[in-house]
Design a protein around this nucleic acid. Structure first.
Lengths: 337, 337
DNA sequence: TTGTATGCGTTATCAG
DNA sequence: CTGATAACGCATACAA
C-alpha cells in the first residue's frame, strides 16, 4: 500500500502539504496542488482511514446494533435501508453490529462499536433493560439513541412508538365492527413490544366490557411459522373466533396460511398489527386491517438527533425542542365482514 | 477515554507490559498480570481498535458490499444474517457497505471498505461488470470474493448459481405437466440474473418446440409492485396463460395479489423462481412451485475461501481443491392443476 | 504558501 | 520477565 509519504516524495513536497490538499484545510498553491494530485494518480494512493481516524479522533461512522432475531423478514431490511440511506446522506457511514440473541451479546455488540470509536450509536434493543441502557448513555461520551423503547432517565435519547395505544386502537376497531370473539397471537412475551401489544388488546376488551378469554390468546415468536402454529393451537382448543389479531406481519402471514389449510377461508377479519408500510400480509389479503409503525420517520428522527448532538447540540438545554418523542401508530381498517 | 498508558501508570508498569497481558503474547508474571487487570477494571479501560488495527495492519473485519436495490425483502435479510453469523463464527466482524444503485456507487462502496482496511471483501454485485471485478481482484492485495456472478479470469474468486439451468428446469417442469401457455415475469433486464432466468425460460420452450410468444413476457423490477403490474400488463394485452413464472419471490407475491384482484383465483399454476428456502410466496399458495437458491451454502463457501486466503492459502496452487464452484438450484414442483 | 515536529493509542523489536 | 523506543499513517500547531 502506497502511503502519503511516498506521494509527498513523488510530488516533491512534505507530508503536511499532501495532507492539506487532501483535506482542503489550509492554503496551498494551485501548482503544487496539481503536482500532488498527479502524484496521487500515478501512485494509486489511497488514504488509510484507520490512521486518519486515529489522528482526528472522529470516524464519521454511526454504529447500529440490532438483534439477530430481527434479521429475518422485511422489517429489518427496511430498518437497515433507511438507516443506511439517511446516514450516508449526512456524509457518514453506518456500521452494523449483530446483537445476536442475548443481553450479553447485545452488550458486546455495543462495546465493539464503542471500541471502533463510532462517533455515535443507535441501539435497537431486544434483551437489554431500559435501566441498563440509561446507564450506558450516561457512562459514555458518545451520543447514543435508543429505538423502540421508552427510557426513564434519558427520555430525549429515545424514539419510540406507543404499541399499547395502537394495539388497543386496532382491537377497538374490530369491536366497533361487531366482533366479540377476537383471537390474539402475541409476539414473544420476553419482548417489551410483545407485552405492550398484548396489553393493548386486553385494554380494548376491558374498555368495552368484553370478558377476557385466555384461551383466545396464544404466544407466538414473531415469525410466520409461529403464526401458523398459533392458529393450529387455537383450533385444537376448539376455539371459535370471528376475528384474529397477529402481533406482527410475519405471524399474520403464517396465520393466514394455516387458516387456509384448515379449510377456513379468509376469516371474518384478520387485523394485522404490523411494521411500517411494507407489510406483506395486506398484500395478500387486501381486506386486512393493519397498523403502520412509522419506522422511516422514527429512524430519521433518531439520526437527526444523533447528528445534532455530534454538532454539539445539547437536549437538556433544549427541552422545548422535544422532551420526549412519541410517534403514534395509525390504524387503517379495511372493509371486512 | 482512558488509554493504555494510564492503565500502565496505575498498575506501575509500562505500556508494553499492559499490551502483553492484553494480547497474551510474551511472558508476564501472574502478579503483574493481576495488577494490570485490576487497573483495567478500576479505570474502565477499553482498547482503541483504530490504534490497534493501525499497528497490527489487520482489522479482523470482512467487508460486504450489496446494492441498495436488494435492501428490501427477505432475501437480503437472510443473506446478511448468514454472512454476519459465519463471519463472527470465524472471529471476525462483518462491515456492510451500501452499493446504492449505480456502478459508480458500487465502486465507492468497495473503495470505502478497502480504505477502512478490511482484511477481505465480499462483493454481491449488481451493476459492476465481470471484467471490472476481475480487475479489482488483481489490483488489490486483499482477498476478494464475488457472489452470484461468474468471473472470467479469477474463477476461484467467485461463487455462483446457474440461474439459466434452474430457470429452465422450472419451466420444463411446467411443460411436462402439460402447460403450453406459460407467462414469464422477468427481473430487471439490466441485471445478469434477470437475463439469465429469462434465457432459461426461452431455452426450455425451445427444447420442447414450443414457439416463443414475446407477448407472454413482461419485464419486472424484482419487487411485489412490479409483479402485480406485470400481471396487469399481461391481462391488458388480452393474453391467456395456464401458468406463470415470476423471476423471484417478491414478484410472485405481487403477481398472486393481482391475479386475485382480477378475479382469477389461484392460477392453474404459478411457479416461483425464488431465493433461498425462505420464499414467502409458497407460504401463501402452498401448491406453488419454487426454486431454492442455496444462499446459505454459497455464503459459507465464500467466507471459507476468504478465510483460507487470509491464512495464506493460495488457490492457484490448489487447483484440485476447487477450480470453480457451481451450486445448482434444485427445483421443487408442488401439485398444481 | 510550505516544512518541521509532535501526537493519536497500539504493537512489536530489542535490550536488559 | 520487563522497559524503552521505534513504527503504523495521518493531522495539525507552530515556525519559517
Amino acid at each position: 500500500m502506497t502511503t502519503m509519504l511516498e506521494v509527498a516524495k513523488r510530488a516533491g513536497v512534505s507530508k503536511a502539504t499532501v495532507s492539506r490538499v487532501l483535506s482542503g484545510n489550509g492554503y496551498v498553491s494551485q501548482e503544487t496542488k496539481d503536482r500532488v494530485f498527479q502524484a496521487i494518480d500515478e501512485s494509486g494512493y489511497r488514504p488509510n482511514l484507520l490512521a486518519r481516524n486515529l489522528a482526528t479522533k472522529r470516524t464519521q461512522t454511526l454504529g447500529l446494533v440490532v438483534t439477530n432475531t430481527l434479521y429475518h423478514g422485511v422489517y429489518f431490511s427496511e430498518l437497515l435501508f433507511h438507516a443506511a440511506r439517511m446516514t450516508e446522506e449526512r456524509g457518514r457511514q453506518l456500521i452494523l453490529a449483530d446483537g445476536k440473541h442475548s443481553a450479553e451479546e447485545e452488550r458486546e455488540a455495543i462495546q465493539y462499536l464503542l471500541d471502533m470509536r463510532c462517533d455515535a450509536i443507535i441501539i435497537y434493543p431486544r434483551f437489554l433493560s431500559v435501566d441498563e441502557m440509561d446507564a450506558i448513555i450516561q457512562d459514555h461520551s458518545q451520543p447514543v439513541m435508543v429505538l423502540n423503547r421508552r427510557l426513564r432517565k434519558n427520555s430525549s435519547h429515545c424514539v419510540w412508538s406507543d404499541h399499547i395505544a395502537s394495539s388497543e386502537a386496532a382491537v377497538t376497531q374490530l369491536i366497533k365492527l361487531g366482533h366479540r370473539d377476537i383471537a390474539f397471537i402475541t409476539g414473544s412475551l420476553d419482548s417489551p413490544t410483545g407485552i405492550e401489544r398484548l396489553s393493548g388488546y386486553k385494554a380494548a376488551l376491558a374498555q368495552h366490557q368484553i370478558p377476557l378469554r385466555e384461551s383466545l390468546i396464544v404466544e407466538g415468536k414473531w415469525n410466520p411459522a409461529s403464526g401458523a402454529a398459533g392458529v393450529s393451537t387455537l383450533l385444537a382448543r376448539g376455539e371459535t373466533f370471528s376475528a384474529l389479531v397477529a402481533s406482527n406481519d410475519d405471524m399474520a402471514i403464517g396465520a393466514i396460511k394455516q387458516l387456509h389449510e384448515s379449510g377456513i377461508a379468509t376469516p371474518a377479519a384478520v387485523s394485522v398489527i404490523g411494521f411500517d408500510d411494507v407489510a406483506i400480509a395486506p398484500y395478500i389479503v387486501p381486506s386486512l386491517s393493519s397498523v403502520r409503525v412509522p419506522v422511516t420517520e422514527m429512524i430519521k428522527e433518531t439520526i437527526s438527533r444523533l447528528i445534532f448532538m455530534l454538532d454539539g447540540g445539547d437536549f437538556t438545554s433544549q427541552q422545548n425542542f422535544a422532551g420526549e418523542l412519541i410517534l403514534r401508530d395509525s390504524v387503517v381498517a379495511g372493509p371486512h365482514r
